[in-house]
Every structure is written in structure tokens, then in C-alpha cells.
Design a protein around this nucleic acid. Sequence first.
DNA 1: ATTGACCTTAGACGCCACTCTAGGGTTTAT
DNA 2: ATAAACCCTAGAGTGGCGTCTAAGGTCAAT
Lengths: 140, 140
Amino acid sequence: MKSQAMLKIGELAALASVSRDTLRFYEKQGLITPGKRNNVGYRLYSETDVNRVSFIISAKEVGFTLNEIHQLLELEVTKDEKSCQDIKQFVDAKISIVNERLEDIKRIKKSLQTLSNACCGGDEPATQCTILEALSEQTN
Amino acid sequence: MKSQAMLKIGELAALASVSRDTLRFYEKQGLITPGKRNNVGYRLYSETDVNRVSFIISAKEVGFTLNEIHQLLELEVTKDEKSCQDIKQFVDAKISIVNERLEDIKRIKKSLQTLSNACCGGDEPATQCTILEALSEQTN
DNA sequence: ATTGACCTTAGACGCCACTCTAGGGTTTAT
DNA sequence: ATAAACCCTAGAGTGGCGTCTAAGGTCAAT
Ligand SMILES: [Zn+2]
Ligand SMILES: [Zn+2]
Ligand SMILES: [Zn+2]
Ligand SMILES: [Zn+2]
């Protein structure tokens, strides 16, 4: 019964598809608690550590920053004292941020498309190009 | 006829709604060519400089990075040798980038909303919270 | 004459999320 | 025995876009 097959950093890195540097970086940032070391100082990761790392990766994939993941992890480790409400609020706050970002990008896309559509795209010299003219216009 | 009312940096900064530091930074980056100075070394900006700055601001507003604005300005100053095609291609390339970014954000928003929707948001302890569970799941 | 608002410079700092380097030690395979 | 692949550290570098600081000089108003 070797339930605790500790992983070395390269093994965990491969498992999680991140670099060794990234794992050491997460540790330095306090996202992973520095765990055991073997006799020559190599990091050894337990099952728990592996879960922690997969939490971080998943959270990153849905757009949380490392800073937010820090806070999420605090909710995670104290989840007995937290309510679903707390967690959901956190996610909803992030949704608001993402929504703003989304609107920004949409606005930018629209502006760019307006620029592009107004330009003839032809072979003639761009002395009168509507794109350059539009960009030179005063905004205020 | 005082068509050349040269502006000091603070005046242009106010006009363009950027900081003096930002203007000096743009100059250091080569976005604005260092222009005239008065007898004590103060920068003086001409009409042309003002247009240049407003070009930069406009381009930033539609999502170009300073690096891209650099290239755009090169198109701008040599526009007699460029075609509308060149300019339009540049903008269309940026639209592609923005589109990718847009898809990323949409995907993230969707994931977050799935997370949020699955959580009851209630007052009970979060020990079984579906959000935390989902985030702890292995992705691979 | 002295404030306060303005101007100058070089260079440090901040955020984000790594990534890389240099200069070591260890383990594994041949 | 040697090379390749792995591990360690501290610290520097990257890119994007400024912001701030320190240590000055200048100008307008009071
Ligand atoms: Zn045209
Ligand atoms: Zn055109
Ligand atoms: Zn619940
Ligand atoms: Zn929940």
C-alpha cells in the first residue's frame, strides 16, 4: 500500500503540463505551501499537493489571476467556515470583471471594423486613406 | 496670424488627457520625434506634434499597442509610398488578434457562468460547494 | 522675497505571470 | 567514467505601459 507516491517536481510538472519553474514560482508566491524535501533537498509532492496544483490550473483556465486564486484558495482551505454564498459571490464578482473586459474588446473590434470597412483597400497610394484620416482626428 | 502657438508639455498633456510623463515616455519610445525646445530647454509642441499625439491616442483607443502604433506611424509618414491595401491589411491583422482575444474572454465567461449556475449560493457551509469541487477536478 | 506651479533628467518601481541564467549538486543510463 | 537528464538557489529579464522619485531649474503671482 504505497498510497503516498511522492512526485518530484519534474513529474508533477509533466502531469500538470506546466514548467518546473512555474511550480517553483507558485511556491514563492505562496500558492503552494513548501512541502517535504528528500535527503538531498529535492521537492516531493503529495497527493494533496497535486490536488492543490490542479485547483490552481483549473482556476487559471477559467480566467482567475494568481492573485484571485490566492483568495480562492483561502476560501478552499477554510470552506467549513464559508458558505456557498461566499464562494458564489466571489465567482460572480469575477464575472462582472470579465463582462467589462468583454465589452471593451467588443467596442474595440467594432471600431476596427468600422475603420477597415471605410477603407477601399485598393492599390492606389494611401495619401487619402480613410483609416489614417480617422486616426488623425481629434477625439475631444 | 499666429498659426504656430507652440504648446508646453503640460498644455499638450491637458489637451490630450494624458500625463506629462506619458508624453515624455512616448518620446523616449520614438513615437514622438523630439521637437523644439525653448531657451531654457522646455519642450514646445507644434500643430504637427499635436496631430501626432492625437493619432497615438486614437490608435490606442481602438486597441493598438504602442508597438503597433509605431508601425502604424511608419505607414502614416510614408503614406505616399503605401497603398490603402497596406493600411487595411494592417488593421485586418489586428482585427484577427482582437477576435481571438474576444473568443478567449467569451469562453472564460461561459465557464464562470457554468460554475456560478451550479452553485446553490445558500447559507450552508461550502464543504460540498460545486464550484470548489469543479476547480479541484483534474483537467487531464 | 517667497510660494507654488511648472519644467528638466535619469533611473527606479509596479503589475502580471512567468522565463531564463549562472553556477552549482544528483541520478540514471551506457 | 562520462554524459544526459534531473534537481537546487538567487536573481535578472521580458513585455506592455506607464508612474514616481530625486534633485534640480524657471516662471508668475503675491
Ligand atoms: Zn483607398
Ligand atoms: Zn484606405
Ligand atoms: Zn451549495
Ligand atoms: Zn456552492
